[in-house]
Nucleic acid binder design. Sequence first.
DNA 1: CCTTGTGTTCTCCG
DNA 2: CCGGAGAACACAAG
Length: 277
Amino acid sequence: MGKVLNKLVLRVEINNVNVIRNRKNSFKKALERRRFVNIERRGKMLIFEIEKGKKETKRYFLLARMGMTGRLVYFSEEDALWGENSFKNKKSFSHKHCHIIFKFKEDAVMLFCDIRRFGYMEVVGEKELEDRLAHFGSEPLSDSFTLSVFRNTIKNKKTTVKAFLLNQRYVAGIGNIYADEILFEAGVRPCRVASSLSAEEVKVVYKSIKKILRKAVVNRGTTFSDYVDSDGKEGGFKKYLKVYGRGGEKCLNCKAGNIKKIRVAGRGTCFCEYCQK
DNA sequence: CCTTGTGTTCTCCG
DNA sequence: CCGGAGAACACAAG
């Protein structure tokens, strides 16, 4: 979404007020006639820093969370028309599911669309931002996420290793697809109790987190059904999926075991009964 | 019925 | 009875 940086937001159109949380911070008023001066990410949350007004001392931020089907889409000048051809992926971007439109002075637009409406946006002040950031664990691809940090985090956790990986308080940003792929890469069964992993297994899971997430980022994410990035482009990681969505198939690695599909931590979970111990 | 991210509520245990 | 941990539930719509 870097293309919206420093562009002037002229107008914010709200088609569905229900996707805005924390309405006390007057969403439109906080955004119109201002610019986004910085954009960051923490876990699965995007943080747009909003330009300060002349007399203001405190900063405000636009937070965006995509849930399952939420997406931010950028249209440049020539594409920013509402004609039939603009919305090539009609299910994702139909008028019906486009909830907020940011119109920039530069003639560009940014859309917040969400079919299932698990996603939301909100404007928060510095204090509220601090509160929300406090709920996130380590950024798995940062240098500060070391093996010893990971050992300390997973130590004594009585939950399953899959639930542990999905818990944003421990490691931020891992969802269901990557949790399954990480555990396959590590050769560890999703239903294992986290604290039961040997020192060696913890190390392998740690390395697998880095490896899978790096590869996913390089390939710009996973398009399993209809995910697209802000340019409307699909992610390329799908071709590297080894267990997710392969329940009932033969394992690509051992060519012997079957990929089982079970339920762990309330989520559909795929693993190889032969490769993962 | 299934799918998932996350915020809330419930339950268990010391 | 309190607090924390972890599990379970609720939500949405295709």
